[in-house]
């Protein structure tokens, strides 16, 4: 069990993620603008051009600080290597997708491969990377020596892609992931977890906040797939390495709802830009209105627009409120887990 001093040092180290992510985001805003890497902010009347792929700041921050943490805590080096490989490779997949616009089906498949380092390292070093005993709230747990490793790459692909799917409005992805990471960090500290998970959750929280500063409404930087996929993969890997699987699922309820209802209506993996029927439309007064097209997917944003049109900040407030609630439930789940 780590001492209070070790926990404090770990969180202080992770707090460096905030200025680092902030500086890197600012750098990518200039760098990508100079190279014509822009996205259109479709939910504004004047359709401004915003620098894309600035979310690369988050995985770079996570990788840099993980290297520093690994130097201080060699006993967690294996876990950090697994984390770095997953985040680095998923960021690479995201960057390729940003550049070459892959078909929707390739992202989940490629991210499954990105999750393989956790499985392979876990097989070579049993018990040092992940633990195949799934702990469940109230009822102890159960041993899953065969199924658990098989589901790891799928779980990482699901978290990665579901985070990728819930970034339609300014600040949504970074803000929601920061809320989820904060609740899991509080849970890790309260449960006196090892410093490894505390560091990972804290670094994701502060790296997301650094990016959020520029990504919040009105956005001056877009994450791009490079940021969204790597952040989602980081979150999935963290809950597996930290053994917070069930709490992580609960905290991500809004993500799950958004992806499930998207896929259940569309019935295939498809990019938003390829959708025939959009879930929302922009009204003349700049507010968003839910689509009345029965073919359009029932996304979380569309659901939040049921009954009345809303401005972008109003919808984002609703999304954050839902994440605050689901993250509180996730924290409760964690505290109920033995």
């Amino acid at each position: 069990m780590p001492t209070g001093l070790e926990q404090s040092f770990t969180i202080l180290l992770a707090m460096l993620a905030f200025p680092l992510s902030l500086i890197l985001t600012r750098f990518f805003m200039s760098f990508n603008s100079a190279r014509g890497i822009f996205g259109i902010d479709a939910h504004k009347l004047d359709k401004p051009r915003i620098p894309e792929m600035c979310g690369a700041a988050i995985p770079i921050t996570l990788l840099a600080l993980s290297a520093v943490y690994g130097a201080f805590y060699p006993q967690h080096r294996l876990m950090i290597v697994a984390f770095v490989l997953v985040v680095g490779s998923s960021a690479l997949v995201g960057a390729v997708d940003d550049k070459y616009r892959m078909r929707g089906i390739y992202k989940p498949l490629l991210i499954v491969l990105c999750g393989m380092p956790v499985v392979v390292l876990g097989l070579f070093f049993p018990g040092e990377v992940y633990n195949h005993t799934l702990r469940v709230p109230l009822f102890g747990g159960f041993n899953l020596p065969i199924i658990y490793p098989l589901t790891i790459p799928i779980a990482i692909s699901v978290t990665s892609n579901t985070v990728n799917m819930l970034d339609p409005l300014n600040g949504t992805m970074a803000g929601s992931v920061a809320i989820v990471a904060a609740s899991l960090l509080i849970g890790a500290v309260l449960k006196n977890s090892e410093t490894g998970p505390i560091f990972l959750f804290a670094s994701l929280l502060f790296a997301s906040l650094g990016f959020f500063y520029f990504n919040r409404y009105p956005s001056r930087a877009f994450a791009g797939n490079v940021g969204q996929l790597s952040v989602g993969a980081a979150l999935g890997t963290m809950v597996i390495l930290g053994r917070f699987e069930i709490a992580g699922i609960v905290a991500m309820f809004p993500h799950i709802q958004n992806s499930f209802f998207f896929l259940s209506r569309i019935k295939r993996f498809v990019e938003h830009r390829e959708l025939g029927a959009k879930p929302t439309r922009l009204s003349e007064d700049g507010r968003l209105v839910a689509s009345t097209d029965p073919q359009s997917p029932l996304t979380l944003v569309r659901t939040l627009l049921v009954g009345r049109p809303s401005s972008e900040p109003e919808i984002v407030s609703g999304i954050f409120a839902l994440f605050l609630f689901s993250s509180a439930l996730g924290l409760l789940t964690l505290l109920l887990t033995g």
């Binding site: 709230p137 609960v250 109003e314 407030s317």
Partner: peptide, 28 residues
């Protein structure tokens, strides 16, 4: 001040709570 759609958020909170309890029962 951003006023969210409170009715929808309340219904969503109800759904999440129900799903959470069902999840605990299923895991049990």
């Amino acid at each position: 001040m951003n006023i969210m759609n409170r009715k929808v958020v309340s219904y969503q909170v109800l759904i999440f709570s129900t799903q959470w309890m069902l999840m605990l029962i299923g895991l049990g």
